[in-house]
Design a protein around this nucleic acid. Structure first.
Length: 851
RNA sequence: GCCCGGAUGGCGGAAUUGGUAGACGCAGCGGAUUCAAAAUCCGCCGCCGCGAGGCAUGCCGGUUCGAGUCCGGCUCCGGGCACCA
């Protein structure tokens, strides 16, 4: 009996698919289409198990839908602009383009042996001028349509390297290369007007019924619609022009509990004060060292400085509140100024306790309404509370009711107005970086900002840029930067900022429908292929990438690049978990942790050690990462066991939305199982006559498996589908059925396994005389009549605990079941001659005897 | 800090709408085959208890004939926080 040799067989079938152009997608209006897309990778150079899992999932869906008769589009490309290429350029003196395209070639070579049903004829990289020329054209269209504009925003500034840093390049408040304390600095940049679509993007979330609920919630919270009160405090002692201080609050009901006002260090008032007051200037400078991320601001120690300015309480002209500058107020949200109500906001309370400000209870709990001490009282807004400082509503009311009453009160008395506000900020569309899509705009001293002429697109990145000094290499490239003005011909400078890589990934799904069109999209292809029927990717993209893509699709509709129906480009979304592996570490002579790769480690039941015998500490299983060296290279697994084994394993153990732990033993088990399936197919070829009863039993098992696997695939429960295939394998192995029935069973097995292990499936299909490629075979249908059982086993509970069971005909009447239960020996023992208080019969399910 | 998830045997996980907790796999144990091993095949396998039985789904409490599943309150772990992609 021969062994299944994956290394020999897999390339054979890959060649067969390629020669038949099996996966080439062609627009065919006569057929129903299905567009399945996995989030395209950043070309780091090596694929990792996370990629294998992501693409296997997509491939499974693509192959299944093909078998169900759909015209499937399943493309692949590269999210190729980004920081790592620029870092490689700085560190190794290699041009980002060279680094990136070499990585793409390497990664593609690692992906091809996986046997994915991809249409490689549509492959592109976002750094191809053929791709970004269209992005530049659309940028100009969107500029004309008013969807793009310029303004300033804070960035992380490294004062030593004189360069803008990404948030991940700021480590403990310092630049990662220079080590210098980072400053917040205002810079002009380009923005997409996504906030104009906030309401629409929020409303449309309701239509995304095939998205995970958690993603929809996260997006809604990110957009963050709130209703609140905007009003102005009258100031005392403020510089000229600051007679009023505008604030926004979502809790106007707590206005009587206000004990201070606070402004951001970036607020115009703070900026005015720091010009003349060195103490304020020093404090604002300190605040600006916090960086730009919300996380940094929110987790930092709350610091403030009293400006000496006072504001008048709008409801009590005799009361004055101090105005503080505080490091936790965001200039980007609301008006950059708030009033603090310490009793009902934990941040305000911490701040008030630290600086000795008043804490005024505005409301208390209905029962045991104690005053606030160190924990702010923040009940749900729907809960009724007892008001101590109500000014326009009854003593007992909910927060919601009080908020509306307070807004009405402010509007009636003319000191404020109710406003709706979104947390969502406009999308900063550009970066001070070289390796991105150039913004096709020129700055002319005479004409101002001038769009590049369409016929001059693409504006390509220079191939002779140098990366020996920090900052944007485009700034140091005079022959690229200095150009004549497209309008007046006078001296002008190109925009040297390039587009955020999120722009590249916000429309690649549309480009895949017509990757070689002379325009960004082709109307016919977009009409036919869009939208993406199933999008698959990591949960880490739940907010930004998906929200930006939803916006960009709308912007493309507005500029005529997509049909109206594409406003929500991803019909169904699935977010998969990560691939993890346990970690191995030792300690060096200086006490530092040294990580080891799984290959360096010998693992047995007693623990783990290095090859030289030194013991190794086994750490928790975490996401595979280079820094912890807990990586398994897919290429090694493919070489050792074949692609099918890797595919089978990443789909088996864990549900796809959860993390899966890679273990060598698990991979081994997957390989063994595939060998076993192969052996069963070989045995079936030679098997002779069997028992009629066994034939029928096997046929029923096969149909049960068809139904189960189909349901599980439809529900994205791939691990359960695989468990059912294991079960069927066990049944076939033990079955006394005849050769014909076993061969039929194994052919169905090949069909059901085809989406997961396509190479093995083809080999078995061919062995058993299947017609053509199993990849082209229609999905098997189950016969419902074969799933009906004659009798069922009902568990019997006594007082809710299972004690025994009875087997009854499937169609037994309730009375018959009750009689059978009462006659059961175990039940009689528990009854001890008495009568049950209650007998609950759930037909087809369970019986509960209540004593 | 804020938003969103997750937690079930030694391990990964399964369990329709609230109805047999532990499917399937790994590891382990016992056996067959073998000169021996690998491979393969068969069986056992939540914990405690000789047993009857008791205890078990992160922790505490509640609803119910019945809770892994529903409700309230925690703990720990993970994802995101707008310049990583």
């Amino acid at each position: 009996m021969s062994r299944y040799n994956a290394t020999e067989i897999e390339p054979k079938w890959q060649k067969a698919w390629e020669e038949a152009e099996t996966f080439r997608a062609t627009r065919d209006p006569a057929r129903a289409k299905y567009y399945v897309l996995e989030m395209f990778p950043y070309p780091s150079g090596r694929i990792h198990m996370g990629h294998v899992r992501n693409y296997t999932m997509g491939d499974l869906v693509a192959r299944y839908k093909r078998a169900r008769g759909f015209n499937v589009l399943h493309p692949m490309g590269w999210d190729a602009f980004g920081l790592p290429a620029e870092n490689a350029a700085i560190e190794r003196g290699i041009h980002p383009a060279e680094w990136t395209y070499a990585n793409i070639a390497d990664m593609k070579a690692q992906m091809r042996p996986l046997g994915l049903s991809l249409d490689w004829s549509r492959e592109f990289a976002t750094c191809d001028p053929d791709y970004y020329v269209h992005q530049q054209a659309m940028f100009l269209d969107m500029l004309e349509a008013g969807l793009v504009y310029r303004k300033t925003r804070m960035v992380n500034w490294d004062p030593v390297d004189m360069t803008v840093l990404a948030n991940e390049q700021v480590i403990d408040g310092r630049g990662w290369r220079s080590g210098a304390p980072v400053e917040r600095r205002e810079m002009p940049q380009w923005f997409f007007n996504i906030s104009a679509y906030a309401q629409e993007l929020l409303d449309a979330i309701d239509t995304l019924d095939q998205w995970p609920e958690k993603v929809r919630l996260m997006q809604a919270n990110w957009i963050g619609k709130s209703r609140g009160l905007q009003f102005a405090f009258e100031t005392r002692g403020a510089p000229e022009g600051f007679e009023r201080l505008e604030v926004y609050t979502t809790r106007p009901d707590t206005l009587m509990g206000a004990s201070f006002a606070a402004i951001s260090a970036d607020h115009p008032l703070a900026r005015a004060l720091e010009k003349t007051d060195p103490a304020i200037a020093a404090f604002c400078a300190e605040c600006r060292k916090l960086g730009t991320s919300e996380e940094a601001l929110e987790t930092a120690e709350k610091l403030g400085l009293d400006t000496g300015i006072r504001v008048v309480h709008p409801l009590d002209p005799d009361r004055e509140l101090p105005v503080w500058i505080a490091n936790f107020i965001l200039m980007d949200y609301g008006t950059g100024a708030i009033f603090g109500c310490p009793a009902h906001d934990q941040r305000d309370l911490d701040f008030a306790r630290k600086y000795g400000l008043d804490v005024i209870d505005t409301f208390v709990a209905l029962q045991d309404g104690r005053p606030v001490e160190d924990v702010a009282f923040v009940p749900p807004k729907t809960e009724k509370v007892r008001w101590l400082k109500n000014f326009a509503w009854p003593e007992i009311a909910t927060g919601e009711e009080a908020i509306e009453a307070a807004i009405a009160h402010a509007e009636t008395h003319g000191y404020g107005k109710g406003v709706e506000q979104f947390r969502l900020r406009d999308w900063g569309a550009t970066r001070q970086r070289f390796w991105g899509c150039p913004v096709p705009v020129v700055h002319c001293d005479a004409c101002g900002m001038v769009p590049e002429r369409r016929e001059n697109l693409p504006v390509t990145l220079p191939e002779d840029a140098t990366f020996d000094r920090p900052g944007n290499a485009l700034d140091w490239h005079p022959s690229w930067r200095d150009v004549p003005c497209p309008k007046c011909g006078g001296p002008a400078k190109r925009e040297t900022d390039t587009m955020d890589t999120f722009v590249d990934s916000s429309w690649y799904y549309a480009r895949f429908t017509a990757p070689w069109a002379k325009t960004p999209t082709s109307r016919e292809d977009a009409e036919y292929w869009m939208n993406v029927d199933q999008y698959i990717g990591g949960i880490e993209h739940a907010i930004l990438h998906l929200l930006y893509s939803r916006f960009f699709a709308r912007a493309m509709i507005r500029t005529g690049h997509l049909p109206e129906k594409c406003a929500e480009p991803f019909t169904a979304l699935f977010t998969q978990g990560m691939v993890t592996h346990e970690t191995y570490s030792t300690t060096d002579e200086r006490g530092r942790t040294v990580w080891h790769t799984p290959e360096e480690v010998i693992r047995d039941e007693r623990g783990a050690r290095l090859k030289d015998g030194r013991p190794v500490t086994i750490g928790p299983s975490v996401k595979m990462s280079k820094s912890k060296k807990n990586v398994v290279d897919p290429a090694d697994i493919v070489e050792l066991h074949g692609a099918d084994t890797a595919r089978w394993f990443v789909m088996s153990d864990s549900p796809p939305e959860r993390d899966v732990e890679w273990t060598a033993a698990g991979a081994e088990a997957a390989a063994k199982h595939l060998q076993r399936v192969w052996r069963l197919a070989e045995e079936a070829v030679e098997a002779g006559d069997g028992e009629a009863a066994a034939d029928a039993a096997l046929r029923r098992a096969v149909h049960r498996t068809i139904a189960g696997v189909t349901d599980d695939i439809e529900a994205f429960a791939f691990n359960k589908a695989i468990a059912k295939l294991y079960e069927l394998t066990n049944i076939v192995a033990k079955s006394a059925a005849g050769g014909a029935e076993k061969r039929a069973a194994m052919k169905v097995m090949a069909q059901l396994m085809q989406p997961m292990t396509p190479h093995l499936a083809e080999e078995i299909w061919a062995l058993l005389g299947g017609e053509g490629l199993v990849t082209d075979a229609p999905w098997p249908e189950h016969d419902p009549a074969l799933l009906v059982e004659d009798s069922i086993t009902l568990p019997i509970q006594i007082n809710g605990k299972r004690r025994t069971d009875i087997t009854v005909p499937a169609d037994a009447a309730r009375e018959a079941i009750e009689a059978a239960v009462l006659a059961d020996a175990t039940v009689q023992r528990w009854l001890a001659g008495g009568q049950p208080r209650k007998l609950i019969v759930v037909p087809g399910r369970i019986v509960n005897v209540v004593l």
